[in-house]
Amino acid sequence: MSLPHDPADKIAEYAHPERLVSVPWLQEHLGQPGLVVLESDEDVLLYETGHIPGAQKLDWHLDLNDPLTRDYVDGERFAEVMQARGVTRESTVVIYGDKSNWWAAYALWVLTLFGHPDVRLLDGGRAAWLAAGGEMTTEVPQVESTGYPVVTRDDTGVRAFREDVLEHLGKPLVDVRSPGEFSGELLHMPDYPQEGAMRGGHIPGAASVPWARAAAEDGTFRPRAELEAIYQQEQGLRPDDEVVAYCRIGERSSHTWFVLTHLLGFDSVRNYDGSWTEWGNSVRVPVER
């Protein structure tokens, strides 16, 4: 059973208003049958400090990544993760998180790999809920395990691998990292040389559009007209273009993937989750500075 869409004017203007809900909508529908709220943060302890009542934690490292191979979990593990949170295939799942929903968007993108039908983001994430004076609790809800089917992950539609990007060269690429990473000046985060890359720069032909440009000061998405001005008028991207977005490990680019796909209605956007930590370490792939 799906919950109704958020009829707010700002949301109704987006290409897929069924993918986003506002804080007032969530306040109104919290606790209704069929709704499961998940918090997905960069900080693994933030949920424990307090969360939206009834929300459960979904951690991108521990729950969505395979512990051994650099890949996402398989259908069986995904079903376990969903079942433990009381999610069924029919549930309306609303995800929110810290950092303007980076990790929430990343989690939503992973749910998309498994074709979960109704998954939405909370516009503005955790910060917007708090700013609106929304209630928080440290109580972890007890949920009954549900039957979530084992669904085979489908990487073909929204995920790009290195080989796909090599074939894609010449078509639109969006690099959502900071200007210093794009220019190649920053090879890694200070003090994190082991998360860095052997080469700095960007994938040839990529446009630099830092992910945060899509977010307003308060972490909510900019209205559709402002997003069109950035991605369509300024960058010249068209909704029927094939686009690949990337960052360092694929989380910031999930945010941009969400913007292009669900807010602007682009037909074919893929997230290259290998991103610069793969490309910048790969032998003989072309790099531009």
Binding site: V44, L62, D191, Y192
Partner: peptide, 17 residues
């Protein structure tokens, strides 16, 4: 295992600093 090995690098970096 509780916070993921990747996140442990934050503490390693802090100690080295």
């Amino acid at each position: 295992a509780a916070v993921s090995p990747l996140r442990m690098r934050g503490m390693v970096a802090m100690l080295s600093r």
